[in-house]
């Protein structure tokens, strides 16, 4: 695909597919499996054609999330590099014993005898009226598990480069794809891989730092564009990974802007935004004039469009809160 300005572009779901294909081409140890991923190509149409290209290295499975996660674990510690799709991130609790108690602990508890290189891809996030059990972001369940890496790309280009890096990584990686991003089209990645655990400053500014991950980064960038029209100069940091957590990049940004808001699609209690804010205040209090979070209400995710729209952070809310916190709420526009 090509944009009007000649920049080569790619759809997010295609970028994920091409990343899997590229790593399968590169390394015969990579295998890919999950429910409806092979013959049908996945419920979000992410993986059509891979079965044809790679034969029995791509296969469909029963609806048995615990067995699939354990299968990926057992395969990973005996020489394969499995990529497993858990269709909706809401189904991850079914797989958690293997992910948390087997895969995440293997390297350390074995006395560093063998790594556990596996990737669990999963579709997460709200905004599609899927209801409470098909819309969650699983980060609070995963982020507190040492040994597990958690990655959530914001753009198609990053999805490609981060997924290739995740497949090459020697640790279990949860790779979280926001459902509302599958159809976005972005410039292709200029690099083959991006390092896991490194955040990126995706917009530079001097007044306030907006921090998010996945779809939240795009919301922050839209809010920043709106705020620029009001004379507020936002810096936007895309965390890209939530474990390891690149606090250094955020602290550098905060040292410049002295204000930070962390935007999370999820609850405040037990969420990554509040955790990051805690680290920032512990390590960078001297740089902070203001620090807060924008998160979701402490309820399950509602279904009705009016309820769900109100539930989720969006660019308008981010822009409004930044304007208020900076004491500019009543300033005339422009």
């Amino acid at each position: 695909m090509s944009g009007g300005d000649g920049v080569e572009t790619i759809e997010f779901r295609v970028a994920v597919r091409e990343a899997i294909a590229a790593e399968m081409e590169r390394d015969p140890a990579v295998v890919f499996f999950g429910e409806d991923v092979a013959a049908a190509g996945g419920v979000f149409a992410v993986t059509p054609g891979l079965r044809k290209r790679f034969g029995e290295r791509v296969f469909d499975t029963p609806i048995s999330e615990l067995a699939l996660a354990a299968g990926a674990f057992g395969a990973a510690v005996t020489g394969l590099r499995p990529v497993l799709e858990i269709m909706f991130a809401d189904f991850l609790p079914l797989a958690m014993d293997s992910l948390v108690n087997q895969a995440a602990k293997y390297w350390y508890v074995s006395g560093e005898q063998a790594p556990c290189p596996l990737v669990v891809r999963s579709a997460m996030g709200a905004g599609g009226n899927f209801g409470a059990m098909h819309s969650q972001t699983p980060v609070p369940w995963l982020q507190g598990v040492p040994g597990l890496k958690v990655v959530a790309p914001a753009t198609a280009g990053d999805a490609y480069a981060l997924l290739r890096a995740a497949i090459r990584d020697d640790n279990p990686v949860a790779f979280l794809e926001h459902k509302r991003l599958y159809s976005v089209v972005d410039p292709v990645s200029e690099v083959e891989t991006l390092p896991l655990g490194e955040a990126a400053v995706v917009r530079e500014g001097g007044d306030v730092t907006l921090v998010s991950v996945s779809k939240g980064v795009r919301d922050c960038l839209r809010a920043a564009a709106e705020l620029a029209e009001r004379g507020i100069d936002c810096e936007v940091v895309d965390m890209r990974s939530l474990r390891p957590l690149d606090t250094a990049t955020v602290l550098r940004s905060v040292a410049k802007t002295n204000r930070v808001v962390v935007v999370e699609e999820g609850p405040l209690i037990g969420g990554w935004a509040a955790n990051l804010l805690g680290i920032l205040t512990a390590e960078g209090l001297h740089d902070l004039d203001d620090a807060w979070t924008i998160t979701c209400p402490e309820t399950p995710i509602p279904y009705s469009p009016t309820l769900e729209d109100a539930f989720l952070p969006d660019p308008a809310r981010i822009a409004a809160e930044v304007t208020t916190r900076l004491g500019l709420a009543r300033a005339p526009a422009g």
């Binding site: 057992g74 395969a75 510690v77 005996t78 394969l80 108690n101 293997y106």
Partner: peptide
């Protein structure tokens, strides 16, 4: 491995068998 949680060994061996088959 030896698995501290009941059933973990079944999952681990199933995955190890996947490697041997593929």
């Amino acid at each position: 491995g030896c698995f501290g949680i009941v059933g973990g060994s079944i999952g681990a061996a199933t995955g190890a068998a996947l490697t041997q088959k593929l």
